[in-house]
């Protein structure tokens, strides 16, 4: 029973990471209907920028872990948001009237571009995050949980709540939902489509960066190509939960994470990914629009 409880904890932590990455996909897809594969690259960029912030501050004798973590998160989210803004201007805006496939390929190109730039700047060797939350995990009976694991879950829940509130309750959020329904009409009604779409990309980038920093803090090792596999898992989580649906991203992430954890109890690890993706196919066969279904706009 101890093992089962521990697996549930493991599944929730890894699921929260997937959920955070999935949120970025879902925001962009929900508004502009583009699967932004650059999301994995933005996630990796965020992890490396966060590490840079921590190293610069530590060089200036900032030692408070809370301050370092906050600064890493804030710095990475702002800088990666800016990077996402740039990406939108260079790689998507010129393709706004082109077939959606062009933008899709463009987003893949951006993923590899970001990866290679990181590799050129930092080398191919894995980089190490300092353990800011202490090495000692908490233990409760048979269950252990790293403080950074709890932080991931809390931040994922918090950001999901914030996104949901923003999209549903603010003026800009309403503009986003309007664009999701019909860009042309939203523009005619006075919505500044370019500005709102750019903001959507910035938010997606910032969400990816938050996930990157938290993964660095929790697992300690980051690599220039970390965004490829994580991006794919995050994308899967988004589709599983219902892409374009904000709470769906977290639900999809948690389902995927728990599924991966629980499968290891009954099957050798090498079967893990095969079974997970078989389940994904099964879910989509019965619920093509994901577990929670609808897109951002349809909730209004």
């Amino acid at each position: 029973m101890g093992t089962l409880a521990q697996q549930l904890v493991n599944g929730v932590v890894i699921g929260a990471v997937y959920g955070l990455i999935a949120l970025g996909y879902t925001m962009v897809y929900g508004i502009v209907r583009l699967i932004n594969f650059a999301q994995g690259g933005l996630y990796a960029a965020g992890a490396f920028i966060g590490l840079e912030v921590v190293e610069i501050l530590q060089a200036h004798r900032v030692e408070s872990p809370a301050l370092l973590i906050l600064a890493a998160l804030a710095g990475a989210m702002i800088a990666t948001g800016a990077l996402a803004f740039l990406v939108e201007r260079v790689a998507y805006r010129p393709l706004r009237r082109a077939p959606i496939l062009s933008a899709l390929v463009s987003s893949l190109a951006v993923l590899f571009l970001i990866e290679n730039v990181i590799q050129l700047l930092t080398g191919a060797q894995p980089q190490t995050y300092p353990s800011l939350l202490g090495l000692q995990p908490w233990t409760l009976g048979p269950i252990t949980l790293a403080p950074s694991g709890l932080l991931i879950v809390l931040v994922a829940l918090g950001l999901m709540g914030a996104m949901q509130w923003f999209v549903q309750r603010t003026r800009t959020g309403r503009a986003m939902r309007a664009i999701a329904v019909n860009q042309e009409v939203a523009g005619l009604m006075g919505v500044d489509v370019r500005r709102v779409v750019a903001l959507t990309f910035v938010m997606g980038g910032a969400l990816g960066a938050a996930a990157g920093v938290l993964v660095g803090l929790n697992y300690g090792t980051i690599t220039f190509n970390m965004g490829e596999l994580a991006g794919l898992e995050g994308f899967t989580a988004a589709v599983l939960g219902g892409i374009g649906n904000v709470p769906g991203a977290l639900v999809g992430g948690l389902v995927l994470g728990l599924l991966q954890s629980l499968i290891t109890i009954v099957l050798p690890n090498q079967w893990n990914e095969a079974v997970v993706f078989a389940v994904l196919i099964a879910v989509l066969a019965f619920r093509p629009r994901g577990i929670l279904g609808e897109r951002v706009a349809e909730r209004a």
């Binding site: 493991n10 993964v215 697992y219 090792t221 596999l229 994580a230 290891t264 050798p268 690890n269 090498q270």
Partner: peptide, 22 residues
């Protein structure tokens, strides 16, 4: 007791290691 494969590109092996510990 067991011989299993891992994907070396992942970052999270906690689920597998929980089983190993058991």
């Amino acid at each position: 007791l067991s011989h299993q494969g891992i994907n070396p590109n992942l970052t999270d092996y906690t689920s597998l290691l929980t089983q190993v510990k058991a």
